[in-house]
């Protein structure tokens, strides 16, 4: 497994004066923030503040109008998503419905050209890590909400990304499951020593999982508290 090549002391993730607008609407106005190696940062803010957009900018799913994104000290602003070595857990998981749990978790490894035996081994490790031992051949459509979330996390961690992005990972789960999963998530991320940027609107959740919280409107030039919905994709 290739280890992430990090420039010593460089932040794992860095957004530098990122500006994005959708048509006439300014969504991110010169936003800057960073995540140190092995740090877990919660990105908070009201809906419409551009949290998800910032996450997608870092992943390379939304292009910036200006500003830059660095991963482990390397400028990736012009790199396509698949070369950024960023893992992401999507709000509704986005597990591939035509693949079983093992093939979902192994997807990133397969893209790196990792051999079959090593893949199977790594999948086993990752499933163990998220508490889903023996789930390899389950169909992802039969998983409960909590299980699906764990598979999504295992899938994003399996290729050993430079950092992971979690987009509202616990939204929509019921209270009990929410608290359980929040604790497990924190444990997994810490034991895995992975740099993490986590989007949430819940202060308690941020406190439970993250090392520190940052509030989005205060990150930019103008604290534009545009109370609209999330921007269109």
């Amino acid at each position: 497994m290739p280890l992430p090549e990090t420039t010593v002391d460089a932040p794992a993730l860095e957004a530098d004066t990122v500006t994005v607008s959708f048509g006439p609407r300014l969504v991110l106005d010169a936003v800057s923030m960073s995540v140190a190696p092995q740090e877990i940062v919660a990105l908070r803010g009201p809906s419409g503040s551009g949290k998800t957009t910032l996450l997608r900018v870092i992943a390379g799913l939304v292009a910036v109008d200006s500003g830059s994104v660095r991963v482990a000290g390397i400028d990736v602003t012009a790199e396509p998503t698949h070369r950024r070595r960023i893992g992401m857990v999507f709000q509704d998981n986005q597990l591939f419905p035509h693949r079983d749990v093992a093939a979902n978790v192994a997807f990133g490894l397969k893209m790196q050209g990792v051999g079959k035996r090593l893949r199977a081994q790594r999948v086993e490790e990752m499933l163990e890590l998220v508490g889903l031992r023996g789930f390899q051949s389950r169909s992802v459509t039969t998983l409960s909400g909590g299980e699906a979330k764990r598979v999504a996390l295992a899938r994003s961690l399996a290729p050993a990304p430079a950092a992971v992005l979690l987009d509202e990972p616990l939204t929509g789960l019921d209270r009990e499951l929410h608290d359980q999963l929040a604790a497990d998530l924190a444990a997994v991320l810490r034991s895995h020593r992975v740099s993490t940027l986590l989007v949430t609107h819940d202060a308690a959740e941020a406190a439970a999982i993250a090392d520190r919280s940052v509030l989005l409107p205060s990150l930019g030039r103008a604290a534009a508290a545009d109370a609209c919905e999330d921007p269109p994709r």
């Binding site: 997608r56 992943a59 390379g60 799913l61 396509p80 998503t81 698949h82 070369r83 950024r84 070595r85 960023i86 893992g87 992401m88 999507f90 509704d92 986005q94 597990l95 591939f96 997807f107 990133g108 397969k110 893209m111 790196q112 899938r155 994003s156 290729p159 992005l165 994709r233």
Partner: peptide, 21 residues
């Protein structure tokens, strides 16, 4: 869901692989 493509890309799949896989 368009994010299924996005998920594959964050896992390192170039466009051709996103299409094929």
């Amino acid at each position: 869901p368009p994010d299924l493509d996005a998920a594959a890309r964050t896992l390192g799949a170039p466009p051709v692989q996103v299409w094929r896989q």
